[in-house]
Design a protein around this nucleic acid. Structure first.
Length: 288
DNA sequence: ATGCCTGCGGTTCGCAGA
């Protein structure tokens, strides 16, 4: 399992005197579509990929129902922001972390779609390492558009953009990782014409994503490749996986200091071919 | 063409997802 289909190295040299971690650290996002249904998949993947930090979306359970002991047994600290039935986000970290936010600041929301932590990274020779701020996001779907659900999606994105603007002033290593429910460009869908009226691809949706990215973030995948056909989601219906009818909606946005450390990006596409998979697969980046 | 499929709740079909 966890066959790596897409892996994109970044052609960048190390500057003289620049401090980098020997093998880098992996930060991943994975929409599990029910953490209880996906515990075996998730556990196998955590062992195989061994990410340092993972943002999970669509837990679909209360915090007390999260399989905390099982994940902790694999060597992870666990922070959850769950709710009954729907949504729910979590951050897993091999390293110590402090939770900064559960829920998006300045945005009253009964839906559990945002969690933010600062992770303390190990330094060389047990020296005090750096820290990295990680935001786990689960954007609303927004369909049907127009309508109240689309208004909610736009409001969520506006609030996230305002918060991200403040976070960037800290000039930290920062990653906003998650299910954005936005297809950035036509090349990010097998059949882009099928999505033109959809909340995932409307010009207003793409413009809102652009306003966030243009604050100064780097889309990790697009920093490594211009290739079309790189997807993170395939619908359960109509043989979408078998037809490779996919879309790219799970993204890793990097602050300038994080983008400077980008080594490679991967999508663990083979997860989608397993028995009883999530409809999303993990995307991850390695920072040096 | 509209549903196809999956998960959840709570009982078995409606809602949500994307």
């Amino acid at each position: 399992m966890c066959g790596l289909i897409h892996a994109f190295p970044r052609n960048t040299g190390t500057l003289p005197g620049e401090k980098r971690y020997a093998h880098g650290m992996i930060i991943a996002s994975f929409n599990v579509n029910s953490v209880r249904q996906r515990l075996e998949h998730l556990s196998r993947w955590l062992v195989a990929r061994s990410p340092d930090i993972v943002c999970l979306q669509e837990l679909k359970c209360l915090d007390e129902a999260f399989p905390r002991a099982e994940i902790e047994a694999l060597g992870y600290n666990v922070a959850t922001h769950g709710q009954k039935t729907f949504n729910g986000v979590a951050i897993l970290s091999k390293h110590p972390m402090e939770i900064e936010q559960c829920g998006l600041p300045g945005f009253e929301d009964e839906q559990a779609r945002y969690i933010e932590a600062v992770v303390s990274l190990p330094g060389k020779d047990n020296q005090q390492g750096e820290a990295i701020r990680v935001c786990g996001v689960y954007f609303p779907n927004g369909n049907p558009a127009p309508g109240p659900k689309y208004d909610y999606k736009m409001a969520f994105m506006a609030a996230l953009t305002e918060h991200a603007k403040e976070l960037l002033t800290y000039e930290e290593k920062l990653v906003i990782a998650g299910d954005y429910n936005i297809i950035p460009e036509a090349r990010d869908a097998k059949f882009p014409e099928a999505w033109t009226q959809d909340a995932l691809a409307l010009p207003e949706s793409r413009a809102a994503l652009g306003r966030l990215v243009n604050l100064g973030f780097t889309d990790a995948l697009r920093a490594t490749t211009d290739s079309a056909g790189l997807y993170t989601f395939w619908d359960y219906q109509a043989g979408a996986w078998q037809r490779n009818n996919g879309i790219r909606i799970d993204h890793l946005l990097l602050s300038p200091r994080a983008a400077d450390r980008l080594i490679e990006v991967g999508i663990d596409k083979d997860m989608r071919a397993e028995e009883k998979p999530s409809d999303h697969v993990p995307i991850w980046c390695r920072l040096g």
